[in-house]
Design a protein around this nucleic acid. Structure first.
Lengths: 149, 149
DNA sequence: CTTTTTTATTAAGCAGGCTTAAATATATGC
DNA sequence: GCATATATTTAAGCCTGCTTAATAAAAAAG
């Protein structure tokens, strides 16, 4: 394996391992919350988008409006989402997180950050600098609009 | 925000963004493959473990043996898995990927690496070195047995 | 041996997400 | 104003995954 390909290989392995860990932790949290993944995804989307219509959700999740409507209905009944009429277009609905929904999302982010912080705390300050430098570079190359929802 | 907390924040954001991207790409691939996530997870597990019994699958996925058995059955019928009697313990079954199953898993890994490589190719050699250094550190701190399946 | 435990499968039933089709209400174009 | 397009909801039905309970077969324990 050449030098540059082993560099790429290291990066790929790092990303693979990290995402795998993140993925498993996330699955666990969602399951523990009593929600399903599609339901939770909607909460995450609304966390980052603050407010949107139903069609935005179905578009983002690549499901039908009907499916999105049914998912939203459950979240509204669970008290996690608020659904109001859009005053500018009375066909549309404005969806946003309820206070309870916000708390749940924040708890999930806290859980997600817990193991990251453990990792970070294991490192020397100089090492943190190295990892952060790599991440800064990675972030600068990732598509800007790629919000985590 | 203090200096060290902004370092940690950078690392968390980097991990968040990268995992989010990886997650979405993976979802897309699995959906396109015509399999469901639980089914695909089994293929991934067998890719890394090469061979195992049914109970290993149910344990890892935290579902009942019955559920795992049903999932495996579908994958066997789809020609993606081979299920043979364990000669050492005739109660147990030896599960492994078929050639077709291997091809599918490899295709998923290729797809997963495609955008990573695009990212890497955008970088100067010196930048790759920085990212790789960060990843090497991260990898050294991640629990060793944490294989991506 | 006989009993108990382990491994896997099958059956019945529930819950979830998804789709299409139909319905409702509002906005837009002409 | 009237026809058309858009945003959402509801209903019916399908497919999956999951669970528990029952079954079968082989291994392990005594």
């Amino acid at each position: 394996m050449s030098d540059s390909s082993s560099l790429a290989e290291t990066i790929r392995q790092g990303i693979d391992q990290v995402t795998h860990r993140a993925f498993r932790e996330h699955i666990r949290f969602v399951k523990a919350s009593g929600l399903t993944m599609p339901q939770f995804n909607i909460l995450m989307q609304l966390h980052y988008q603050h407010e949107c219509g139903l069609s935005d959700i179905s578009a983002r999740m690549e499901i039908s409006n009907a499916a999105a409507s049914q998912l939203v209905e459950k979240l509204v009944q669970a008290g996690l989402l608020e659904r109001a009429e859009d005053p500018n277009d009375r066909r549309a609905k404005q969806l946003r997180l309820s206070a309870q929904g916000q708390r749940l999302v924040e708890a999930s982010m806290a859980a997600r950050h817990r193991w990251m912080d453990e990792l970070i705390e294991q490192m020397e300050p100089a090492e943190r600098e190295v990892v952060a430098a790599g991440m800064r570079l990675l972030l600068s190359r990732l598509p800007a609009g790629n919000k985590p929802y």
